[in-house]
Design a protein around this nucleic acid. Structure first.
Length: 258
DNA sequence: ATGGCCTTGCATCAAGGA
């Protein structure tokens, strides 16, 4: 079973790229982030025609998350991260697919830092900690995946010294990520590739992809009930080289059947 | 150190992104 996460940076503008990638790689489950489309503008028919069921949490202009599943039922559990009724940003969706509880998330960017946007990022992280603490202990397989907007270590940044004051790499942000992992989650990519340089995002600026000036900010966290089923993982980085592509590449893991 | 680019939207620039 192959599960992927992909920050598409606009699901409608990116539809040809998304459909081509789905057809070529045929992931079983896909978590999408940055739909940048209101609920009624999600390209549902095109996704169905591609062979996928879908649930999504849209929002005009910004954010937006979805879960796709190929030929499998998606049982939605919740949308929106608990803990703040005032938070109207569409950044979390949770569902059960094939016996696995999947939380798809788009963590706030947080720049500029310090400031209110960074405060929002850290408070969102705190809410995620509370929710994830329950999920990690569940007696069923749980996967938290998406765009975390965090480079966990210096290994995950092409030029770490340039990013120390950035909201994606500040000590508070890295601490928050490591506290999350310490609950008992496995960072799937790092588990399989402990020393390799692996990026999932390349800026549109300065030929970042051509120079491989990337960041690793899209992650898969596995709870103990599923960590042993991790077979392989990777980044479809060639997709980042396509025309009209997202600044993120799709990331995936493959799980053994029970 | 700076700027570079791309997306969406009551648009022809602004805001957000990372």
């Amino acid at each position: 079973m192959k599960i992927a996460t992909y920050n598409v940076n606009g699901v409608n503008g990116r539809l040809p790229v998304l459909l081509r990638w789905l057809a070529e790689e045929q992931p079983d489950v896909v978590c999408l982030q940055e739909l940048k489309a209101p609920q009624e503008k999600f390209p549902q028919q095109a996704i169905i025609d591609a062979g996928y069921n879908a649930i999504w949490h849209g929002q005009k202009s910004w954010n937006g998350v979805a879960i796709l599943a190929r030929g499998m039922e998606i049982q939605e559990v919740s949308r929106g991260l608990p803990g703040d009724d005032e938070d109207t940003q569409s950044r979390y969706i949770e569902a059960v697919v094939n016996g696995i509880l999947i939380g798809g998330l788009y963590l706030p960017n947080g720049n500029p830092a310090p400031g209110p946007k960074f405060d929002y990022k850290l408070s969102w992280f705190e809410r995620l900690h509370k929710h994830a603490a329950r999920l990690v202990e569940l007696d069923i397989p749980v996967i938290l995946t998406g765009d975390f907007n965090v480079m966990p270590t210096e290994q995950d940044v092409y030029k770490p010294e340039r990013w120390v004051d950035d909201a994606l790499f500040r000590p508070e942000t890295r601490d928050a990520f490591h506290k999350l992992i310490a609950q008992g989650w496995t960072d799937a990519i790092r588990k399989l590739y402990p020393t390799e340089t692996i990026y999932t995002f390349w800026d549109y600026f300065r030929n970042a992809y051509g120079r491989d000036a990337g960041l690793r900010i899209d992650h898969f966290l596995l709870n103990p009930k599923i960590a042993d089923r991790l077979k392989s993982a990777g980044v479809d980085r060639h997709v980042r080289g396509w025309e009209k592509t997202s600044d993120h590449a799709p990331v995936w893991i493959e799980l053994a059947e029970k």
